[in-house]
C-alpha cells in the first residue's frame, strides 16, 4: 500500500530529474532531486512504497534513464498514468520500474489517497475511496523482461538457454 503523489499531464524528464544533476549516475544522489522543479517537497515526503499518479504523456522529453532510476530510488513502487511517453515507458520496463497505463485510475485518484496495486492482475484499489480499476496487462515479451528483473538479465537468461 502506498500514498499517492498526484501530478498533471506532460510531466517531462527535465522536472523528474533536472539536467543540472545529470553529472552523476548515483541513484541515491539522483533521488534527492527527484521532481524538485515542480514539487520541492517530494524528495523529503516520499516513503517506500508510495505511488505516483499522473495524466497523459508522463516522462516526455529526454531519453535519460536517470528519470525512472531517480523515481525508483526514491522508493516509489509504481507509476500510474493515463499514458506514458515512449522512451520513458521502455526505460521503466528495461530497469524494472513497474508502470501502469490506466486512464480511469489516473483520472479518479487524488493526491494523498492510499492505493494498492496487484501487478499480476493489473488491479488497482483505491482504499481511501473504496474503488477499484483494472489496467491493461503487458504483452508476453515485456512480461519476460519484467519477470527476469530487467532487460539485461532477460538477455543473459535467453543467451544461457541458447548456449
Amino acid at each position: 500500500m502506498g500514498k499517492v503523489f498526484r501530478y498533471k499531464d506532460n510531466i517531462d524528464t527535465d522536472v523528474i530529474i533536472p539536467a543540472r544533476y545529470l553529472n552523476t549516475t548515483n541513484p541515491t544522489e539522483l533521488a534527492k532531486h527527484c521532481m524538485e522543479d515542480i514539487d520541492k517537497e517530494f524528495a523529503s515526503k516520499v516513503r517506500p512504497g508510495d505511488i505516483i499518479v499522473a495524466g497523459e504523456n508522463f516522462g516526455c522529453g529526454s531519453s535519460r534513464e536517470h528519470a525512472p532510476v531517480a523515481i525508483r530510488a526514491s522508493g516509489v513502487s509504481c507509476v500510474i498514468a493515463k499514458s506514458f511517453a515512449r522512451i520513458f515507458y521502455r526505460n521503466a520496463i528495461n530497469i524494472g520500474l513497474p508502470i501502469l497505463e490506466c486512464p480511469e485510475a489516473a483520472e479518479d485518484i487524488s493526491g494523498g489517497d492510499e492505493v494498492t496495486v496487484d501487478f499480476d492482475t493489473g488491479v488497482i484499489v483505491n482504499k481511501t475511496r473504496g474503488k477499484s480499476y483494472t489496467a491493461g496487462g503487458f504483452p508476453e515479451f515485456v512480461r519476460e523482461i519484467i519477470n527476469a528483473g530487467g532487460r539485461l538479465k532477460s538477455l543473459k537468461a535467453k543467451e544461457s538457454k541458447r548456449a
Binding site: S63, P68, R90, N91, N94, G150, R151, L155
Partner: peptide, 14 residues
C-alpha cells in the same frame, strides 16, 4: 529512434 541507457547496453552487446 531514441532509447534509454539499458537499451544501449543491450544493443552494444547483442
Amino acid at each position: 529512434t531514441g532509447v534509454g541507457s539499458t537499451d544501449l547496453a543491450a544493443g552494444m552487446y547483442s
